[in-house]
Design a protein around this nucleic acid. Sequence first.
RNA 1: GGUCCUGUAAGCUAAUGGUAGACUACAUCCUUGACGUGGAUGAUGCGCAGGUUCGAUUCCUGCCAGGACCACCA
Length: 782
Amino acid sequence: MASYNVEEVEERIKKFWEKEKIYKFDIKRKGKIYSIDTPPPTVSGDMHIGHAFSYSQQDFIARFRRMFDNNIFYPFGTDDNGLPTEKLVERINKIKSKEMSRSEFIKLCLKTLKNITPDFIKQWKDLGISADYDICYSTIDKNSQKISQKSFIELFKTGRIYKKNFPSIWCPECQTSIAQAELEDKELQSFFSTIKFESEGKVLPIATTRPELIPACVAVFVNLSDERYKKFIGKKAKVPLFDYDVPIFADKSVEIEKGTGVMMVCSYGDKFDVDAINRYKLEPRVIFNYNGTLNFGKYKGMKILEARKKILEDLDKEGLILGKKQISHFVNVHDKCGTEIEFLPTEQWFIKILDKKKILISEGKKIKWYPKFMYKRYENWVNGLEWDWNISRDRHFGVPIPVWNCINCKETILPEEKELPVDPLEKKKICPKCKRVAEPETRVLDTWATSSLTPQLASSLIGNRIKLPYSLRPQAHDIIRTWAFYTIVKSYLHEKKIPWQNVMVSGFVRLKGEKMSKSKGNVIKPKEVIQKYGSDSMRFWAAGSKLGEDLNYQEQDLIAGKKFVTKLFNASKFVFMNMRKTKPKKPKKLEKIDELFLSELNRAISATTTRFKEYNYSGARLVIEQFFWKDFCDYYLEMVKKRIYKGKSNEKLSAQYTLYQSLLSILKLVAPIMPFITEEIYQTYYRKHEKEKSIHLSGWPKYEKFSEKNDWGVLVKNISLVRQAKTQKQIPLNSISDVITIPVKEYKIIKTYEEPFISVSGALVIKAGKEFKIDFPEVKVK
RNA sequence: GGUCCUGUAAGCUAAUGGUAGACUACAUCCUUGACGUGGAUGAUGCGCAGGUUCGAUUCCUGCCAGGACCACCA
């Protein structure tokens, strides 16, 4: 152990942990179980820095709890179900899923996943995430499919799940319906064109950003109190270019000031149109195919944007455009692909949730959110819900909806539980009523319908021994409206329970205040950071900001962690350089200064423990950092050095005992944040004297009441004054000083610790006086 | 438009109703038997305006700036 080789040590320690199964969950271990509903990362090529950030933060808590509570359930999972995986597989294999059969594509997905998942998970191991990787699920594995399908069947049987033909949010790119939670805003440049509609020979101008919807127009709305258009109410309007009539209604939702004050209702431009068409029982004119092309006339087959351009040209030719201006506005897009969404009438499966908004809010309130304000985001989301949860997706790769439909009698046929998991496409079912072959449901479940069951998925791997609520759900704030929300929904609907007692919500990593994204090209790869600085440093960095706060990434911040590792390494080397061969027993009488330092240690343990318990890992880091570097290294070590070198045996033993114990405690306090270096030091110096085979399995340091006296502070202050004086005089810190005068009030305290004080200050005489003063021997001028 | 979060040194980040503390960078000095990948010292800071208070960086209100989420987007 000459100098600390980060790469070599971390690799070796990692192997040690795996070989010794340090993080293996054992239900028989003593102590209350602390259970964590670990987030399953979406499988992709590389870990994102945001992952490194938030998984480190949850691992601090996991490691703290492992040492504190003794028994921790910390499973691992991967999310590889649904669109992101499909897209990844398409990219890797350079194919299009819709051009393959479902079973072919699924096979390819599973094969691709098998190839890339191990390397992906390895990055979590490299970071030192202390999950039990043997308790590992994938959201697409057979067991997960079974549990997810079982959930569907249960909810269907209780009437929570229904099927409805309804204009739903549709992504023309992914060609599937999606849920409200999957919408995102995107700013787009667009033309706001005023189009000439007519009614009885008079002009009715309508402004729109979506002229391609003109042929889908089924009504025109004006405001009842709008003097300009009042006279048209009840009459017909002629739709330009397409030459058919639509009714003109008065509707109070029309804002007089907006656009021209006249609006067209199309099937379907937005949620408002859906609502309006229902209210007035209008016959929709659906002009889009599922793939986002138009379905009629000369525009047939054109993509929406293409058709928009063409229709504008045609309108222009006919002199039907009254005005045109460029605007930028926000539109709803699909969060996975950024495509503008449409509303298309399709038959979809829904979980009814709108009637449970109130209770879902009160369920959310029962959970402790860290930081607290994150609860508000949940509440806002639930309050703003306008759709039931659409759980069907027209995709290939996902958990199949376990249903057959009888076309004849409309009966929905469910599988038996023992048949699960089942792919209806692969199995024939006969309608029990009509005795005819039923049609298999072709769609799959929304990926959240499965990942909202992560507590059950993980628990199922150990015989369902972990019950709701779990102790902790760690996650980032972007998925409060999805993962957190849906998990609360399912736990309530199935068990009438909250899924977890606590939620800790991490912030985001930013770069110069900006969100990192591939498109901006400002992505930092944790792999490379770890290679350069080590996992301990990476984790130390992740502990640098409060829970829930975003953190600006800058490479120089990694230096602090790296230095801290070196310091721990060197301090430990020093301590054991002067240690006896056997474990130093507690002497009958401790030196005063050792006693004082142990009491300071007590204080630090107490502060760290409190902070970790409150998920305040950054506060904990601050305390330990300060205590180890300043109090332990800069002051205590300096004070005991000489005694260690040449003290009498009992004096020496007192120092050795104190050093041994306090360093061990410090290492334990640091262990949740820096698991590698602390394990390395533990194995090198402590293992032969201590019974636990890993520091991470050792008990959290205990603390007792400590005195409120501030002797340590006084001592530190005076030593600091001595150093200040020497620095000002530009002389070495170990130089001798003649007389040090201490203020009367503090003199008594210093006198109590005279030996260590003299040892550090090099004073020949200490005396009481009015104020602090230091005299140096006269230096003869050459 | 609504809800929420954040504004502290050059950068990053704490605590606090009473002298604002680390870290990185910077400057000066110190090579002493753990560590120069070190030690010591130093300089620079509470977004703006009111209010409550003996006293506000902290509590309240407004404003400004940044961010998140939602709504609207004819």
